[in-house]
Write a protein that binds this DNA or RNA. Sequence first.
DNA 1: CTGAAAGCGCTTACAG
DNA 2: CTGAAAGCGCTTACAG
Lengths: 334, 334
Amino acid sequence: MTIKDIARLSGCGVTTVSRVLNNREDVSEETRRKVMEVVEEHSFMPNSNAKHLKQHASGSIAIIVKGTKNLLFADLLEEVQSLLLEVGQEAAVYYLDEDENEVAYAGRLCRERQPRGFIFLGGDLEQFKAEFAAISVPSVLLTNGAEGLGFENLSSFTTDDERAAERVIDLLADLGHYHIGVLGGNLSDTQISYRRLTGCKKACERRQIPFDMEEQYELCRYSMPDAYEAAKRLLLRRPELTAVFALSDVMALGAIRAFCDMGKRVPEDISVVGYDGIIAGEYSMPRLTTIKQDTKQLAEQGVDTLLRQFVRRGYSVHRFVPFELVSGESVARV
Amino acid sequence: MTIKDIARLSGCGVTTVSRVLNNREDVSEETRRKVMEVVEEHSFMPNSNAKHLKQHASGSIAIIVKGTKNLLFADLLEEVQSLLLEVGQEAAVYYLDEDENEVAYAGRLCRERQPRGFIFLGGDLEQFKAEFAAISVPSVLLTNGAEGLGFENLSSFTTDDERAAERVIDLLADLGHYHIGVLGGNLSDTQISYRRLTGCKKACERRQIPFDMEEQYELCRYSMPDAYEAAKRLLLRRPELTAVFALSDVMALGAIRAFCDMGKRVPEDISVVGYDGIIAGEYSMPRLTTIKQDTKQLAEQGVDTLLRQFVRRGYSVHRFVPFELVSGESVARV
DNA sequence: CTGAAAGCGCTTACAG
DNA sequence: CTGAAAGCGCTTACAG
């Protein structure tokens, strides 16, 4: 069944059928009704391959998730998907390992699949700087800021990571913590861990808390098993730590389990702060003290902006979305 | 850049270019090299819309995830995706609420997007019975069994839910538990909760443990917040319970948090058993005692079978995948 | 081993 | 308001 059949059955030309199917104005009500009747009767759906071949685009938005085990993205993805569904915009999700090059991947997708636009969940600015020029469709980056890059088809929304991290250190300092460890990801200055760590350092300096990168920062991936091992290494190396700031909730959860297996109690013996505000952290034991990123606003503004970019090319915005320091049960006064 | 350009630049016909691009045998080595050179130089990618318009299929596999907050599917999805990536098979993921009709959705996708095949992560047999006939591409259902339905293009792999649930009740009975509550999903006989509950009932009968559906079963969705509320209702109604079997780990995690907030200790005051074996349950406090579904095998056999179905139509298999009762820290002797 | 030509199912100037 | 026709970028008989 093709629009040709529909045309034949409804007694008009294919052009008209196409117009009806695409909700064009310039069709008489009567003709429209006639066509729709036949369409419904056969529950006809236009072939999207043919459609998009002509339109030079696939009609669907590609969502690129960087980091398969990062539950923040799971929460965020859900919000993004439901917003897209509301407006009837199709979306396909592509998962990448956190170390893969998301922009190169998007570039390939562009040539092969021609999506209408991209939503990046997480991203390394390095990659954007180097390869985003090859991408010409509207795009939005969530949880990292791309303002400085100056691409007119790329918007970004993120938490003010530096400020948020400062707040965490301040909280810990206020509670008397002096030996603080940090668990986080890649520190290249194009990654979020770098911005968060910068906040930590500033606050430490301001509060006169010593922070020795080599000794007090432990690198790990965004997954519980990896954070588990990293947290153990960190505490074994620095047994005097009274608090650990994990730059992601998933890491914090792995760390808590690690400390517990080492015979420590959280927060009595060691405090743990997370970052993200994922659902799992609201139901963990102890409940996570963390920086809650506003996934709702991230998703809303991201989707909204992308849709706006579809109609207004060259429009792009970069904004911080508010965060909140949520106090759970994983932090204690020292 | 189209294959026409490649043809011109490499001095041969488009037919030949197409043959090279699709790794056909019948091309001379020299011609192939010449063409590939031009292709690489321009990093040319064939337009998939045009390609699939001809081939009457989209080339990509549609993965339909039923239940956005069910972390089991997150774990499973990751395995499925990485296997698909290994063989270079493109896949698009579509998320549905756990109450939506996944087969109707797949039907629409078929007409619109023409995927090569489907992988369903979770599914209600009811839906399959009613609407799967409309789907003619190879499909695989994971975590539910579709053997009885007799569709020749549908395979299924699942855990022996009934047996596994029996094992859980036996474990609890062995430890002296007599008042056992169950937290689970929709009980229509086409859903997994039904099969798991059937196992519970059988074991309870065998072990002479009373089980009053009205009083001891609490319905909830596959999400921590929902399980949290449901667990509270259950325990308030039946304070004498010494153990709760949550038919999903996500539910178990929500329940543990609920009991704790009610002033109970897990497992000292009340034991909790989960089902699934998700990663988050391995790092929770207490570590979850649960039925570990073999996501690795589920993914491997699922993907393998789907690929096999592509070349051999009418081939379908239905199998149980082994499970394991993993003992964590969430269960105690009464 | 190679290529000219038809056709996949749409959309969109263009002409009426 | 409507329709015949060209064309999107591929694949695939078919003929050589």
